[in-house]
Amino acid sequence: MSFEDNKMLIMPAVDIKNGKCVQLVQGKPGTEQVIIDNPEKVTKKWEDEGAEIIHVIDLDGALKSKDNLNTIKKILGEVSVPIQLGGGIRSVDYGKQLLNLDIERLIIGTMAIENPQTITELSDEFGSDKIMVSLDSKDSKVVIKGWKEKINKTATDVSKEFQEAGAGSILFTNVDVEGLLKGFDIQPAVDLVNSVDVPIVYSGGVTTIQDVKKLTKTGVKGVVIGSALYKNKLNIKKALKLQNIE
C-alpha cells in the first residue's frame, strides 16, 4: 500500500513481547500496561474494525533479547491487510528474510543510523517503497538501540541523509510522550514533513480524536496509535473516518 496525497492512514500498533501483544510506557521493559495473548488475533481485530494497514513491532528484537519470528508469521497468516514491520533488524540478511515474508514495509532504526549503506542495499533490491527508516526522538535528539542510546543529531538533521540513502518513508516517534496518553507537541512532526520529500508517519502520544485531527493538518501520511486504542481512549472507527483529508 503506497501513501496517497490526500490520505493520512490510521495504523493500529501491535507490539510483541514474549509472544504477547503489549503496550509499554516510553518503551521501557517492565512498564507493560496492556498484555494480551495471541497477537495474531489482536491484529485480526483491527483488520475487522476497518484498519487498512497495521503497524507491528517486535519489542524483543528491538531490545536484543530474541525475536518473535514465529508470531510474526502467524500474524501474516491471519490477516489480509498490509503489515509494516520493525524491531530488531540488525543485519541486511535478516531484513531480507523479513521482506521475503511478503510484508508491506520494513522499518529499520539502529542499523540505519549506524550504517546508512544498508538502507541503500535493501532499497536497491526491494524498492524504496518497502523501506521505512525509524527516527526516534527523545529530548529533541535521535535515540537508538531500543531508545537507550542518544546521538547528537535531531530527526530533521538525519532525515535528509536517509532520503538520499534510499528510504521511501520515515517513521517519527516522539519518545518523550510515547505511551503516556497526554498528547504531544505538533511542531516536530511539521518540521520533519517540511525537511524531506518522502512520506512521514507519526507516532507518540496520540490520545484523543482531537489529536488525530491535529495531525491531519501537518502533512504526515500516517499515524500510529497504540495505548489509546487498547485503553479505549480513542475509537478506531472514529479515527478511520479522518483518514481522507479534504
Results as ranks from 00 to 15, higher is better:
Asn6Pro: 01
Asn6Ser: 06
Ile10Pro: 01
Ala13Glu: 06
Lys17Asp: 06
Asn18Cys: 11
Gly19Pro: 12
Lys20Cys: 08
Gln23Trp: 04
Leu24Asp: 10
Lys28Thr: 14
Thr31His: 03
Glu32Leu: 09
Ile35Leu: 13
Ile36Gln: 14
Ile36Gly: 04
Asn38Val: 05
Glu40Phe: 01
Lys41Trp: 01
Val42Ala: 08
Thr43Gly: 13
Thr43Val: 12
Trp46Ile: 10
Trp46Lys: 10
Trp46Ala: 09
Ile53Trp: 08
Ile54Cys: 05
Val56Phe: 03
Val56Thr: 12
Ile57Leu: 03
Ile57Asn: 05
Asp60Gly: 10
Gly61Ile: 05
Gly61Ser: 11
Lys64Val: 12
Lys64Tyr: 08
Ile72Glu: 11
Lys74Gly: 10
Ile75Met: 14
Ile75Tyr: 06
Glu78Lys: 15
Glu78Cys: 12
Val79Ala: 10
Ser80Leu: 13
Gly86Cys: 05
Gly87Asp: 06
Ile89Trp: 04
Ile89Pro: 08
Arg90Phe: 09
Tyr94Ala: 10
Tyr94His: 12
Lys96Arg: 15
Asp102Pro: 03
Arg105His: 00
Leu106Asp: 07
Ile108Ala: 07
Met111Arg: 14
Ala112Gly: 09
Asn115Trp: 08
Ile119Glu: 01
Ile119Thr: 09
Glu121Lys: 14
Ser123Gly: 02
Ser123Trp: 05
Asp124Met: 08
Gly127Leu: 02
Ser128Ile: 00
Lys130Ser: 10
Ile131Ala: 00
Ile131Asn: 04
Met132Ala: 09
Met132Asp: 01
Leu135Val: 13
Leu135Arg: 08
Lys138Val: 03
Lys138Ser: 06
Asp139Tyr: 11
Ser140Phe: 13
Ser140Thr: 15
Lys141Leu: 13
Lys141Cys: 13
Val142Asp: 06
Val142Cys: 15
Val143Thr: 15
Lys145His: 14
Trp147Gln: 13
Trp147Cys: 13
Lys148Leu: 15
Lys148Val: 14
Glu149Pro: 09
Lys150Arg: 14
Thr154Ala: 11
Thr156Pro: 09
Asp157Leu: 12
Asp157Asn: 14
Lys160Asp: 02
Ala165Asp: 02
Ala165Thr: 06
Gly166Cys: 05
Gly166His: 07
Leu171Cys: 02
Phe172Ser: 07
Asn174Cys: 09
Val175Gly: 06
Val177Thr: 15
Gly183Gln: 11
Asp185Met: 09
Ile186Pro: 02
Ala189Glu: 04
Asp191Arg: 11
Leu192Lys: 11
Ser195Val: 06
Val201Leu: 08
Ser203Thr: 06
Gly204Cys: 04
Gly205Ser: 07
Thr207Ser: 15
Ile209Pro: 05
Asp211Leu: 08
Val212Asp: 01
Lys214Arg: 12
Thr218Val: 11
Gly222His: 01
Val223Glu: 00
Val223Leu: 07
Ser227Gln: 12
Ile236Lys: 00
Ile236Ser: 04
Ala239Leu: 05
Ala239Gln: 00
Lys241Phe: 01
Ile245Cys: 00
